[in-house]
Design a protein around this nucleic acid. Structure first.
Lengths: 350, 350
DNA sequence: GCCTGGTGACTAAACGCTTAGTCATTCTAA
DNA sequence: TTAGAATGACTAAGCGTTTAGTCACCAGGC
């Protein structure tokens, strides 16, 4: 086994260069301390550091300057689940986070502890391990955001209401996405449009349901509360949600599933009932995960710019970390309706 | 903005409890130091800590005991790419890593710096930020593993040859997976079986190609080097790889694509040529990503237990961190052939 | 009445780095 | 000349923990 040789310290560099450790420190991080240093000395220090492949110890540096060059990520996983990144949504966001953090020279620490409640869990994020925390899609019912807000660390959020807590956030423009869906379906002549939402405690559910209703009304289509139902974003329960809708005396001619996993469940259920998509039922998803293009028929859906959302939120967090003046804006990124083959004119056979 | 209130320190706890800071330390982490403490004192310290919601500073603790309770992850992303977790393979592995690390009370830090070369990049991992590093699917050509091995930090790896460097690793049993594929195809009467591999500098490519050849031979099927070609695991180039094979005077009757993305590319190319799958061409993938079940026809493929692989490698890393005696074994996890509808008896019309 | 040993807690050093404060030397300007 | 300003570098005090070493006290055995 490779023995754990002790890494060279600043003192080693200083000794090799024949200077004091603080001089070495000043040289190596171009600090604006009042310590001045001649060119010759500077070169000696630099070459000593290079010879030793000196890398400053992150712990010591973090302790001294209370900055770690790392940001934390907290996934808002559903209670009882440990599903962090297997769903494409989380993976896409994380990708954006990694890119933005990497560009800024920060590493990304994923917190693995489960959230219990604000009293117990929030203080754990005060451990100085990261310079700030990015909270991704926390359930609205959990006190995660509020709890973290009380511990006084820089925060930013993805896909949740954070404005009233003075926390900057990024998300897809849910309203615009839903509008695009409803407008698309209305243009195809649909008037009986159902919606199947995800978990009711996610902020996106409220936003999308509301936008659904208002856009419908604006399009002159009567909103029917009977055509609103829900399951989970994982897609579990989508089939029975579909059955519930399909057993109405007045069936919908189109279904807006609030994500692609739900849409896939609906498609499966429809197929097993012999319901033709899109001839008998138009179906729209949300997210545009890779599978959306692959299923039969290819799914009309709303593409979220996941990486951009992740990057945007990360930049906000970095802004908060860098200076206290960073505003608590909620940045909404434009979605894009991807029309494929799961939607068609109502009553048409294509 | 929430002001950054200074978190309570051990000294605050000690003061509140009317003891010295070291007594507080000893109480709070049940250390086996020679400092003894009476039950009454212990209780005073504990309640003081609870009142303040005291959380030890990770940097200070890390500095003092040279342990951070965090493991690092380095993704072996292809040169020029910054694609960390958008592909399902990486996401699945990472999920397993997070679970295992979480169970052990470690957080997971993803290194975002790009690997340049061993001389430049390896020392960066000596910064004490993590207790060890897990390297995931590094290109065999890069000197990542070898470079890290020289800096003397605990290591483990996923999906690469690490034994000769004395590094423990986990991977799917590539040989078993390929055997299952070839056996399946042979049982269906195929004798002209092509293989399309991923990047040639990935260790999995070599392993799968070799296993392919030996299994073929063992099954009494002549190995034809003309039926071996490659593209990239991202699926880019899969279509032209297919075309290359299809333009041989002796076409294959089955293609083994070394992952599902490649298989998807082949399916696309086949469809555009009007080649029927599976009637004219049986197609097998590898990985069993979610889309594999969704495409038309649903793909026969080899399922990798990604999360288990990630967890297994993480446990090995934790073993290395915990004690120097942890062996450098290469753990191979069993794959599972998932037979769907993209394969059928050769020459049959189903 | 003295030594031994157990109990309970404290002091201080160390971890590796940053940075405010100090100081000696040389150079410039009056 | 000499006060004053640069210049170049050093000393030392943290940052918040851990942990080795020290010490006072008290009970009991001789």
């Amino acid at each position: 086994m490779t023995e754990q040789k002790r890494p060279p310290t600043l003192l080693d560099v200083a000794r090799d260069a024949g200077v004091s450790s603080n001089t070495a420190s000043v040289v190596l991080n171009g600090s604006r301390s009042n310590t001045r240093v001649s060119e010759a000395t500077r070169q000696r220090v630099l070459s000593a550091a290079a010879n030793l492949s000196y890398v400053p110890n992150a712990m010591a540096r973090g302790l001294a300057q209370k900055r770690t060059q790392a940001i934390g990520v907290l996934f808002g996983v559903a209670a009882g689940s440990t599903d962090y990144v297997t769903n494409p949504y989380m993976a896409g966001i994380l990708q954006g986070v990694l890119e933005a953090a990497g560009d800024a020279g920060h590493s990304v620490t994923i917190y693995t502890q489960r959230w219990v409640n604000a009293k117990v869990s929030a203080p754990l994020f005060r451990d100085g391990r990261t310079d700030g925390v990015l909270v991704i899609a926390p359930p609205a019912t959990a006190d995660i955001l509020a709890g973290l807000a009380t511990v006084g660390i820089p925060l930013a959020a993805v896909a949740c209401e954070a404005a009233e807590l003075e926390i900057p956030s990024a998300d897809v423009d849910n309203k615009a996405g839903v509008e695009a869906v409803v407008t698309h379906l209305a243009a195809l002549g649909h008037t009986r449009i159902a919606i199947i939402t995800g978990e009711t405690d996610m902020s996106s559910t409220a936003l999308r349901t509301l936008a659904f209703q208002t856009t419908l009304t604006a399009a002159g289509i009567e909103f029917d509360a009977d055509l609103v139902t829900s399951c989970t974003y994982s897609g579990a329960g989508a089939e029975s949600a579909f059955l519930g809708l399909w057993n109405r005396q007045q069936r919908p001619t189109a279904i807006f599933a609030c994500n692609d996993a739900i849409a896939a469940g609906v498609a499966r259920a429809a197929r097993s009932l012999g319901v033709g998509i899109p001839e008998e039922l138009s179906l729209v998803g949300f997210d545009d995960v890779p599978t959306a293009a692959m299923v039969t028929p290819p799914l009309t859906t709303v593409r979220q710019p996941l990486q951009m959302i992740g990057s945007a939120a990360t930049k906000m967090l970095l802004g908060r970390i860098a200076g206290d003046f960073y505003p608590a804006t909620a940045q909404l990124l434009a979605p894009e309706l991807i029309v494929r083959e799961s939607t068609c004119r109502v009553g048409s056979d294509r």
